[in-house]
Design a protein around this nucleic acid. Structure first.
Length: 429
DNA sequence: CTATGTTTACCGCGTC
DNA sequence: GACGCGGTAAACATAG
């Protein structure tokens, strides 16, 4: 199968480059990006995967634990590695023979498209498996930075992480990202700032430190509902930000950006999408600063305070002719956990108007059928850990301090998981 | 000083 | 070919 071929080739490339030197700019990321692209559109398999999840949960060996796995009840110590989750997402795409998700685990490489029937296929597979297994250790994971960040945040009980924690999470799971950190971390920072789906949450006074927390926009829904973690169907755009962008585009916009608009050299060319995306940052900062007045709202026990503040804000902004949607968007900048059920309901109502394809109703980012969090089987961690112990003794690889990131206790590498080999479309087991 | 955050620019790729 | 998305580099600003 083409996708399999591409992936293995790209993996080899990554490996070889790793063996000699840091990755060259020509490493195969884009090639990998191509891998699951064709499939994500929607292959019937992916749809089958989705429907099965929606209707009856995950069938077969890859089934989730079926209980919906409340993320809020999951501490890091019980967090399933995103591995299997990602695996699920990925597999929905590149494996052509996967009729239902439950059959995945039984697939061998010989089952994949090519139909290797040569007498030496077993040996070749074994060799290839070795190669794959070794190679994947340093292959770039087939996930976009956005999906990685989302993964990290959704795996956190608080649903928000600092930048360094996001780094840590990624490095914990993917050895690939333990190198060339400057490169990908810059991209991470860019993704966080650039994408509306990520919301910066100010630190609380009782949690001093550097940098803010990053959370997911409550209305971002499930950005990877198509099962592909490389590319979203459509970039999530905050409606309020979009409005502000439009207002900025028009010469008569009244938003005060005088404090910083002159700092940057205005460039009139380039990526229009990117450019427009950034147009309202000054305005956004104004709004964020308004919210940062109440950093204590981050504590769940102070929801009521938030609520009252929310109402005050509501009143204030009614005076300023702000729409209800704009207000709720502002509230959204506080962490979802700080929102009351009323807020949540309100936000769900409003979410229908977002550009991203929205679900019928009743889903939050955490309970969405395709949510990364929801996809994580609780048992995957132990399974993977066991596998890592048995196969590689690799689970202690992470040098990261647990005190900083409890999720580092996962201590497993995606690449060491049999699931990875499966998810990569090579199903070497 | 370093980490964090923002912004611009450009590129490759896939889709329409 | 236009457009959108994601990745990368880089410059710059700011907070701790």
């Amino acid at each position: 199968m083409l996708t399999q071929k591409l992936y293995s080739d790209s993996t080899t490339m990554a490996t070889s480059s790793n063996a000699m030197s840091p990755m060259t700019p020509t490493y195969s990321m884009n090639t990998m990006s191509c891998v699951s692209m064709p499939s994500m559109n929607c292959s019937p398999q992916a749809q089958s995967f989705g429907s099965s999840m929606l209707n009856s949960g995950m069938p077969g060996s890859m089934a989730m634990n079926g209980n919906g796995m409340s993320s809020s009840s999951m501490g890091y110590t019980t967090i399933g590695s995103p591995i299997s989750n990602m695996n699920a997402a990925c597999m929905a795409a590149p494996i052509p023979s996967m009729n239902t998700y439950g059959t995945v685990g039984t697939l061998g490489r010989g089952d994949l498209g090519g139909g290797d029937t040569s007498p030496n296929s077993a040996l070749q597979r074994a060799r290839a498996d070795k190669t794959y297994r070794r190679s994947y250790t340093h292959a770039k994971p087939p996930y976009s930075y956005i999906s990685l960040i989302t993964m990290a945040i959704q795996n956190c009980p608080q649903k928000m992480l600092t930048l360094s924690e996001i780094y840590q999470f990624i490095m914990d799971l993917f050895p690939f990202y333990r190198q060339n950190q400057q490169r990908w971390q810059n991209s991470i920072r860019h993704s966080l700032s650039f994408n509306d789906c990520f919301v910066k949450v100010p630190r609380t006074p009782d949690k001093p430190g550097k940098g803010s927390f990053w959370s997911l926009h409550p209305d971002s829904g499930n950005m990877f509902e198509n099962g592909c973690y490389l590319r979203r169907q459509k970039r999530f755009k905050d409606e309020k930000k979009e409005i502000l962008r439009q207002s900025h585009k028009s010469p008569s916009h009244s938003v005060d950006n005088s404090n910083s608009s002159e700092k940057k050299t205005p460039l009139q060319h380039g990526d229009d999408t990117h450019k427009s995306h950034h147009l309202d940052k000054n305005s956004e900062n104004n709004l964020s600063s308004m919210l940062s007045i109440h950093p204590s709202k981050l504590d769940v026990e102070q929801m009521n305070l938030l609520h009252s503040n929310d109402l005050n804000m509501h009143q204030q902004h009614h005076q300023q002719n702000m729409s209800h949607e704009e207000l709720t968007a502002m509230v959204n900048r506080c962490h979802p956990l700080t929102l009351t059920s009323d807020h949540q309901a309100m936000l769900h109502h409003n979410s229908m108007s977002h550009h991203l394809k929205q679900e019928p109703s009743g889903y939050t980012p955490s309970n969405h059928p395709f949510s990364i969090t929801r996809l994580l089987p609780a048992e995957s961690k132990s399974d993977i850990k066991m596998y890592a112990d048995m196969q590689y003794g690799y689970n202690t690889l992470s040098p990261l301090p647990n005190s900083v990131h409890s999720h580092t206790s996962i201590g497993n590498d995606y690449y060491n998981s049999p699931l990875y080999h499966t998810s990569a479309g090579t199903t070497s087991l």
